[in-house]
Design a binder for these strands. Structure first.
Length: 297
DNA sequence: AAGACGTGGAA
DNA sequence: TTTCCAAGTCT
């Protein structure tokens, strides 16, 4: 690539690169239905492909349709979710399955506005499903896309804080006219951001793009506001994670003491964590004062 | 509109 | 060891 392609344009260049270098991920194979696409998109929220792969394969087999998942308990779904992180996603998926089974004929809707009304489906995921499952010509904007646009179009090394409205307009302006081309473009630009135009060490040496404003400007260092790095060690989130791990590993309800030993450094924090897990519906208390994953008692 | 929300691997 | 990062969503 890169020699005398004159006129292909960024969309064409990305499409060519994607055809040659895109990964053969199972949810991208022809014929993958909307439900399985939805599962993959939710699992991939803030979670690397490598960790999603085995879980998605198992889920796609075990729960081939929303109704199948709806008939499982939330606890079973949480257990299958394992350590993917942000287990509220699993809970919302379970709710989503019930809604789809009950109100949408056991199928996944194709309209962005309808998808946006489902639990756990936001601006990115709704458009990703509409685009990748149903071939609609809608802008699909994730962190990869925002980073590629920031660099190639705006000449900034980092996209800075998100602005859904602005980001959607930026990408909409780049979308090829045909829906099939637009869908291919979105898959390609996301993959490009994930494999080449990466956050930490972009592979500019092997970049397939003829034009990049960031490169043209000499790769200026990003000056804007930096998102505060979140602590994890010692936080409520870590405590919640420990408690959930105990519940997942157990077969049925566990006694309070079993949870207490999972986080001993700060009893008040442990109580707070358990309290919010109860509120979130990730944990339930049994009649005799034990604790369990929802529906598992 | 910042901040909460998991987890593990790489630099 | 510490920090950063991974196809965001919700409040």
């Amino acid at each position: 690539m890169g020699t005398a392609t004159g006129g292909l344009g960024p969309a064409g260049e990305l499409a060519g690169w994607y055809a040659a270098c895109g990964r053969d991920l199972p949810w991208r194979r022809a014929g993958t239905d909307g439900w399985r696409i939805l599962l993959s998109e939710v699992m991939l929220q803030q979670t690397p492909v490598a960790r999603v792969l085995p879980v998605w394969e198992r889920w796609a087999r075990r729960w081939p349709a929303p109704s199948a998942m709806a008939s499982a308990t939330a606890g079973e779904v949480l257990r299958e979710w394992g350590s993917l992180g942000y287990p509220r996603r699993a809970l919302r998926l379970h709710e989503c399955a019930s809604i789809l089974a009950r109100e949408h004929g056991d199928t996944v809707p194709g309209k962005v506005d309808t998808l946006l009304g489902l639990p756990g489906i936001g601006a990115y995921t709704a458009r990703a499903i509409a685009c990748f499952a149903y071939g609609q010509r809608v802008p699909v904007v994730d962190i990869n896309v925002r980073r590629v646009v920031a660099r190639t179009v705006h000449g900034r090394g980092d996209p800075g804080p998100p602005s859904t409205r602005r980001d959607l307009e930026d990408v909409d302006a780049m979308l090829p006219a045909g829906s099939a081309d637009a869908a291919r473009f979105s898959a390609a630009i996301m993959e490009f951001g994930a494999l080449v135009c990466t956050a930490r060490a972009p592979a500019c040496d092997s970049c397939p793009l003829t034009e990049c404003h960031w490169r043209a400007l000499g790769f200026p260092i990003y000056e804007g506001p930096r998102r505060a790095t979140q602590k994890f060690e010692g936080t409520d989130r870590q405590a919640r994670g420990r408690l959930m791990a105990v519940l997942r590993a157990a077969h049925g309800p566990v006694a309070r003491a079993r949870l207490d030993v999972a986080w001993t450094r700060d009893p008040a924090q442990r109580d707070r964590a358990l309290g919010t897990l109860l509120i979130d519906g990730l944990v339930e208390q049994t009649a005799d004062g034990m604790f369990a994953l929802p529906g598992e008692h």
